[in-house]
Every structure is written in C-alpha cells, then in structure tokens.
Design a protein around this nucleic acid. Structure first.
Lengths: 363, 363
DNA sequence: ATGAAAGCGCTAACAC
DNA sequence: GTGTTAGCGCTTTCAT
C-alpha cells in the first residue's frame, strides 16, 4: 500500500540497495534517510533515528547513486579534464596539480584522454558536459579553433583552457605559459655565456606554443645584433620520442656534422629533443657544453637526467593547475558569465644545468 | 494542460533544454524524440517527424543529459580507470591502450588519479562505481589488500585489476605481467654475454612486482651456480626520478666505487634507475658496456634514449590494456559472476640495446 | 521531528 | 506511427 514503487525490483540478487530500501530497513522515510546522510542543517532527526539509519546502511551495504543525486541537485561536484597526449610532461604535471587542487576543494576530477585528435577531444569535452561535470578544463596540445567551448560556456558550464583561449582570442578563462618569455630567457642565457652561433631544433609540425618559443629566441638574437638562429626542422613526429628514432638521429647528425666548428649553441623546443641531440652529438665526439651548449625546454623530469643535466625553462605546471581550478570555482560560484575572461600568463623559470654551464658535464 | 511538468523552469536563461522542450518545439511527444534520437529498431516515426525533431534539436542546441539516461537505462556505457602515479610509464601506456580499446567498443573511459595513496585510490574506485561506471579497472602500483574490489564485484560491477588480484589471491579478473620471467630474461641475457658478477639496483621500498623481478634474476644466478646478485638498495624514493637526485647519485657512486673491477653487470628494477646508474658510472669513468653492462626494465620510452640505449624487458602494455577491456566486456555481457576469475599473465619482451651488448655505446 | 509528494531528464512498455 | 504512463534513485518543499 505504499505510495510509490515500493522496492519491488528485487529480482536481481546483487543489485545495489536504494535509499528506499534503507528507509524501509530503518523504519523511516526516504527523506529522513537523505537528511541524515547529507546531514542537512535543518535535519532534526533524533539520535536514535540516525543510529537506525546508519545501521541499515551498514547492514545493506548501501551506496548512494551519484547520478541520481546530481540529477536531482543539478550539481555533481565533479570537474572534468580533457587531456591530450597524456605522455607529455607539462600536460601530466598540470593534470596532477589540477586533480590535487580540485580534491582539496571537495571536487572529484574526471579525466578523458585523446591521442591528440581534435575530433576525439571535442567529443570528450561534450561528453564531460553531458555527463554532468560542473566545470571542465581543456588541455589541448595542437591547433584547433575550439569554438565549441563557447557553446559550452553559453550553456552555463564553467570552462577554462590551458594554452588555448588566449592565443585563439576566445572570451574564455585561460591559463597559459608565456613561451615567448621562455624562449627569451633561454636565448639570453646562451648569449650571456658568450655563445653567438645559436641554432634552434624543432619539429616540422609547428604549433603555436613552439612558434612563440622560437619568436622569443629570435627576438633576443635580433636585439643583440646577431643573425637569426638557424633552424633544424626534424621531419619526424614529436611524440612519442620520435627524435630518438634512427631517422631522427640521422637528421640531427647530418645537420650538426655540416656545421662543426660553426655553431656553439642549440636551443631545442623541448627537453626530449634536447636530450636526443645531446646523445647524437656526444656520440659524434662533441663535448657538451665546451664544444656546444644544449638547452632544452619544459623542465620535464627528463631534464634532470644525470647523463645530460639540461638547462631548461621550467613550466610552472603546479601553478597552472591551481589557477585553472580557481577559475572554474569562480565561475561556478555564480560569477557574471559575461565578465571579461580571466586570462593568466605564467612565466617559466630558467633552470641552469651542466648542458650549458657545466663543468662536470662531459663523460 | 500538459500531463507532466511542462517546461516551466524557464527562469535560468542559459539552462540546457530538456527533451521535453525539444518535443514541444517539434510538436511531438517525449518518447518520440527519444526513439528518434536513439533510433530504436521499433521506431516507426515518419521522415517528416524525424526532420522536425532534428530541427528542434538543432535550433534549441539540445544535448542529452547522460546522467538521466544512465539512471533510466541502468547502463552508462562508461568504463572507469583508477590510476595511480600517472607519471609511471607502464601505467600510462596501459591506460592509453585501455582507452583506445574501450572507445573502439563504444565505451567512454573515465580516469581518476591518485598519487599512490591507497586511501584516495579506494575512494576513487568507490566514486567511479557510485557514479555509474559499468566496469572499472584498478591499476595500483603499491601494496594494499584491495578487498573493497570484492565488494564492488559482489554488487554486480565489472571489475578487473592490473598486477594485483592475481598476486593477492583475490577471485577477480586480472592482467599481470610475469615479472619473474622478466627478471629471468634479463639475467639470462647478461650471463649469455659472459657476465658473472651481477648486481641488482632497487629501491628501499620494495613492492611485489619488484620482488618478482629480483627473484627471477636470482633464480637464474642460482641455476648457473653463481652466487646471488648483490643488492644495491637506494634509500631515495622511486618516483619521480628520485634516483636522479644528488642523494641518489651519491649512493650509486659509493656502491660502485667500492666494487670497481669486481662487478661486471647491473640489472636495475626499472629503466629510470638504470639510466641514472649509467649517468653516474659514465661520469666516474666506467665504460658501458665494456666495463659494466647496464640493464633496465619496463621498456619505457626512456630506454630508447640515445645517450644510453638500454637493454630492457618491454612491458606489453598494449596487450594489457586490451585484455583488461575484454575482461570487463565479458563480465558486463552477463557472464556468470561466480565463474573462475580470468587471470592472464603476460610475458615481457627482451629488447637488447647498447647498454649491454653495444659497440657504439661509449661516448 | 517526520513523511508525503513533486520533480530532476530520460527510457520503455503498452495503449491508442 | 504516436502518446501515455510508470518508473530509474535521489532532493526538497511543505504539511503534519
């Protein structure tokens, strides 16, 4: 005679018990169970009632259905992250920081992954929204207009990007790394060591962040009255570790072999490629850094390799993750959606190691 | 005069439109919209109706609420992964493979992350279940009894582990790597090169997988009638890259300096530590591999470093990810939950590089 | 203090 | 072919 669908679905033996069943077992109503569970401020349940509820929960092994909960509440306490190329050090570190910051604010983090595929990334983003995330961070590593992010924002979702909205001119919160400044600090460092014949190692497939680094380097060269740095463009794929392949190593070898005695420094657009170049050069008999200084970029863990401790521009990923969470939190706390987007640009930090300035760097 | 809560919640301007609103706009009922959207086999909607629905969806920018959908269907088409220590190469690769395999079967992958914290891992797992994942894969990197996984399975969730249930004796599907065999193949390789004074580099904090590798190595030593390999136990943390720290390098230096001319091979329990050892040894003037052979483990990308191409035991992460998905799919397709758990053990693949067998390895 | 009832957005059986 | 209805499991308002 109960008013509403008394627990009649008891066919499946191992079904998760519902709140209704807990209520029945405790001899109270669903709403009481709900109040006790979320200990609402306006819940005046007696200690006896609370005990009964807790015991019933324990006995039945009750677990709340979070989908139902967020459906009813309109909030999920969940933040989504759309990752691209999970193996990329700054991405990983930003994600770890994001997760930590979200967790410490009571939010769970949901990550989706795309192997640097704009299609998949878009569908992941969409899915995170449809799944009920309260906010999403998009960490793209490639080009793409990302206009669907505007749609999401319009629908009321909290949205932020890493290294994207700012450069694309989208009115969306964004935390970026100032790669132009990063390039400059690397170049200034090299020049301060007396190096003059600098070259730049990059991949054929350029992207915005890399162009920025290169522009930063060239601006320093120009200001110093030096000719622009020559470019070594590898035809191999950047990830994963394409520059370490035989083909990549051959290209590196050919380039530097033709310039022996001419170049005295190389600024690579990433630590991985710097590491690879170091390997080839050493094998070819160059001494690092006396014959040639090698600088990386990103401050990835690889840059600390004892085989070639790399001077690098450390990506402040911890800050980036924290700021991204803060941006989302602000939006979720009902900030005016039409306010000017917060777009923060963080500056990398120069880490000097033996690959440019060392004494004990040679084997 | 509509039967049920006609779209009256139109206060918030940017709310996501509901299926009800689409139905109203298209002049049909909710169920018709639902049928068209999911194009059910028993949907006989006319082309005109379908058109109308599609136009309404387009116009309103309708997106389905997946939480509501899974609540109603009892399925979410979602697989969860509880990651630990996202920066660890085999973990990352297994995850990428898992995601790919899940996607190609129409499932989305949800990842949660814990920095190797059993507490957080358990809560993440729980959360994935409560959130409605149809199945979960747990990729732990540490000890822990993981008995809560049994509870989850009992509740009807599809559950699988990576390198866990098998060793813990839990009746749960598991895909593991045969690290004993991996240790053996490394040791056999070293002995086949004529090395006799092998030592093992590991971290103070042992875990099962590492113990297995070591046991594998020692079993080969024993069978060859050689004394057991000596152990270098670093007191630093394994991750991230603790063995590359100054403290780690000092310990490595001290150990080998005291054994110069005595040891002729080192088998490290991971590529990172092998790489670090290589760095210290070279700096100390050892030649690799003529003075000492260095072997890594895992087959991580780092093992391909041109600065020290490492012989290693490659972790078949692609297979592991695929098999994990298959296990979950089988469970989800209504396999008898009490059937014997499928526990697969994959064998690593030996990759021989210059750090043990090379000619051009020395700088 | 407690519980009935309506509702979150969707699905699916069954009438029409 | 299309619409009605009764859920999925939870929250929340409002009587009692």
């Amino acid at each position: 005679m109960e008013i509403r669908h008394p627990s009649k679905t008891r066919e499946k033996p191992n079904k998760r018990p519902s709140m209704q069943e807990v209520a029945e077992a405790a001899g109270v109503s669903r709403s009481t169970v709900s109040s006790v569970l979320n200990n609402r401020p306006d819940c005046f349940a007696s200690q006896a009632t609370r005990q009964a509820v807790r015991r019933a929960i324990e006995k039945l092994g009750y677990r709340p259905n979070l989908n139902a909960k967020s459906l009813a509440k309109g909030r999920s306490m969940t933040l989504g992250v759309a990752l691209n190329g999970v193996n990329i050090d700054p991405v990983t570190r930003t994600f770890e920081s994001f997760e930590f910051q979200a967790r410490s604010r009571g939010y769970y983090t949901l990550a989706t992954y795309s192997p640097n595929d704009a299609q998949i990334e878009a569908s992941n983003l969409c899915w995170l929204e449809d799944r009920g995330a309260d906010g999403v961070l998009c960490i793209p590593t490639e080009y793409g207009r990302h206009e669907h992010l505007l749609e999401m924002k319009r629908r009321g979702l909290a949205v932020a990007t890493y290294d994207a909205a700012r450069r694309l001119g989208l009115p969306i919160d964004d935390v970026s790394i100032d790669h132009f400044a990063g390039g400059r600090m690397i170049a200034e460092h090299l020049l301060s060591l007396g190096r003059r014949r600098v070259c730049i190692a990059q991949f054929a497939h350029l992207c915005w962040v890399v162009e920025q680094r290169i522009a930063g380097i060239q601006s320093v060269m120009r200001e110093a009255g030096l000719p622009p740095a020559e470019l070594l463009s590898l035809s191999v794929e950047a990830a994963p570790q394409g520059c370490w392949s035989d083909a990549g190593q051959r290209e590196i070898h050919a380039f530097f072999d033709a310039r022996r005695g001419e170049v005295d420094a190389v600024a690579a657009v990433g630590d991985i490629i710097a590491h690879g170049i170091g390997g080839v050069l050493r094998r070819d008999g160059w001494d690092i850094p006396s014959d040639i200084a090698v600088a990386g970029y990103d401050g990835s863990v690889l840059s600390a390799s004892p085989l070639l401790p790399l001077t690098t521009a450390h990506n402040p990923a911890d800050d980036a993750g924290r700021i991204a969470v803060e941006m989302l939190m602000e939006q979720m706390s009902g900030a005016d959606p039409d306010r000017a987007p917060r777009q923060v640009e963080l500056t990398p930090k120069l880490i000097v190691r033996e690959s440019t300035a060392g004494s004990a760097a040679s084997p």
